[in-house]
């Protein structure tokens, strides 16, 4: 049941967006419409899982044997950037439908702190391969869940009368705070 606990904890209790504050720029940027949020969420799930697998393998089988752990930041960002490029080219060639759906979100992912954050957290928490796989996938699902829920609320906010000074990002941040409060309610569940 261990993997189940890891998944629940990563999706709800330690939600990467609302409890660990990672990936807030796309959270504010692409949450204006539900359809873009869906696309971004799917792209993050795909890339974050793949990036974690690659960085984990490189860290444990290349960097640790050669003693270059201090290069972690540089190597991880390069791996993620290269991977995003590669995925983009691959999808463009092989699967036009998926490319059309995810294409414009892929370049944005390179600078998404959630992807890099998940890769770094895997190393920091000393996860094994299987734990890493579950953790990365579940964290990315948590990100998408929060993003999609948030986009749903934000779509409705267009028609509500909001004080002029709070319009835009200010009200979105306060909303995110209230959502984060709701997610705190899951905290008792893991234990």
């Amino acid at each position: 049941m261990n993997w189940f606990l890891i998944a629940i904890s990563a999706i709800f209790v330690n939600n990467i967006l609302l409890a660990q504050y990672l990936g807030n720029c796309p959270f504010m940027g692409v949450s204006k419409r539900l359809s873009t949020a869906l696309g971004m969420g799917a792209a993050v799930i795909f890339v974050a899982t793949l990036a974690s697998v690659f960085t984990w393998i490189i860290y444990h089988y290349v960097m640790v044997p050669y003693g270059i752990e201090y290069m972690q930041t540089l190597i991880f960002i390069l791996v993620i950037a290269a991977l995003v490029q590669f995925v983009e080219i691959f999808l463009k060639k092989k699967s036009r439908a998926i490319y059309n759906a995810l294409g414009i979100y892929l370049p944005l992912i390179t600078t998404n702190c959630a992807v890099m954050g998940i890769a770094l957290l895997n190393i920091k928490n000393e996860n094994g391969f299987f734990e890493m796989l579950v953790f990365s996938f579940a964290s990315a699902v948590g990100f998408s869940l929060a993003l999609i829920l948030f986009a749903g609320i934000r779509e409705r906010m267009i028609t509500t009368p909001i004080p002029i000074v709070l319009r835009g990002t200010a009200i979105a941040l306060i909303m995110a705070g209230i959502m984060s409060l709701a997610f705190m309610g899951f905290a008792g569940m893991g234990s």
């Binding site: 609302l18 409890a19 660990q20 504050y21 004080p163 000074v165 709070l166 990002t169 200010a170 009200i171 979105a172 941040l173 306060i174 909303m175 995110a176 705070g177 209230i178 984060s180 409060l181 705190m184």
Partner: peptide
């Protein structure tokens, strides 16, 4: 905690 961070930043932005 996390919610305080979001709400604090939002209110400061509003101000």
């Amino acid at each position: 905690k996390a919610p305080g961070a979001f709400i604090c930043l939002g209110v400061m932005l509003g101000l």
